[in-house]
């Protein structure tokens, strides 16, 4: 029998709504929404029945306009927000048989600290701006159980060097850094405990082009080297084209199209994807 490869992370029927819902919008099959918004009860359906599998070493790109639910999905996956319903299975956690959303908050924290890394669009959310850069990286390692200063210092220096932070600035607080440097410190932090899954939320948005290129290079290199699986959210199709193996297209909280990145960019099927790809050119 052929052994099928197990997905690293499997997201099934993820739903996230803001608001209680009403008879007009309760039933997913028959709901009539303006974009993702119920005009009767003002409930917002940010993620509707989002499902995908991410395989080991794979990069999945998620594209879509702002407000399409990309970041909300990422927040749910990193437990920053509680999903309304749905299931997530992580291969590295109890052999992928437990639904992560049903675990206790302690276990969720364990998963975040040991098995995941996230880079936020806004470095303020991912870093402690007043602590040293190396301290920021150590925080994640301390959380994952390290109690050896020399080990954390070495690893921190190694990572910061990898993300091109000059060594004489590693003891400086990220608040003194430029946006691009802050973003790179965040990446170093997310990688510090060698997580099998990395969530990248608009990592290059707002960075200048040369820094963007070096951050993307870095992500690609690290991913090849460490074999990390990555979910990459971006509204920049260039970034997705460069990095992602497969791509999901989201609109109004729903996945409208999914497939190989090349296929999606060269031969988009859905009207929205066509519009998106054309606006790139």
């Amino acid at each position: 029998m052929i052994q099928m490869e197990q997905p690293m992370i499997s997201v099934q029927h993820l739903n996230k709504q803001f608001g209680p819902g009403c008879p007009h919008c309760m039933n997913p099959a028959s709901r009539k929404l303006y974009k993702n918004f119920c005009t009767v009860c003002h409930t917002v359906y940010s993620c509707q029945d989002v499902s995908f599998d991410l395989y080991p070493g794979e990069i999945i790109g998620v594209v879509g306009e702002s407000g399409s639910g990309k970041s909300t999905m990422m927040r749910c996956l990193y437990f920053d927000q509680e999903a309304t319903s749905g299931e997530v299975y992580l291969q590295a956690y109890k052999d992928g048989i437990r639904n992560l959303f049903a675990e206790s908050t302690q276990q969720k924290r364990y998963i975040r600290n040991h098995l995941m890394g996230k880079v936020y669009q806004n470095p303020m959310l991912g870093l402690r701006m007043d602590f040293t850069s190396i301290g920021n990286i150590a925080e994640k390692m301390i959380a994952a159980g390290s109690r050896r200063v020399s080990e954390m210092e070495d690893r921190g220096m190694e990572l910061l060097e990898k993300v091109h932070i000059p060594l004489h600035r590693i003891k400086e607080a990220p608040k003194h850094f430029s946006g691009g440097m802050q973003q790179r410190v965040q990446i170093a932090k997310a990688l510090s405990n060698r997580p099998p899954v990395l969530l990248l939320d608009e990592v290059t948005t707002g960075l200048d082009l040369s820094v963007q290129a070096s951050v993307l290079d870095l992500i690609k290199a690290l991913q090849r080297e460490l074999g990390i699986s990555i979910v990459l959210v971006s509204h920049d199709l260039g970034v997705v084209r460069m990095l992602a193996d497969r791509t999901l297209v989201m609109l109004d909280g729903k996945v409208v199209e999914e497939g190989l990145t090349d296929q999606i960019l060269e031969d988009p099927q859905e009207a929205y994807t066509q519009q998106l790809v054309h606006s790139l050119l």
Binding site: T105, Q106, N113, I134, G135, E139, I142, K171
Partner: peptide, 22 residues
Amino acid sequence: KKLHAEKEYSGAWLMLFEQIMN
């Protein structure tokens, strides 16, 4: 309060780590 409830004390060690770094 949440950090205590979840026995999440990396912050306490982080503050000591910062002292060692500085």
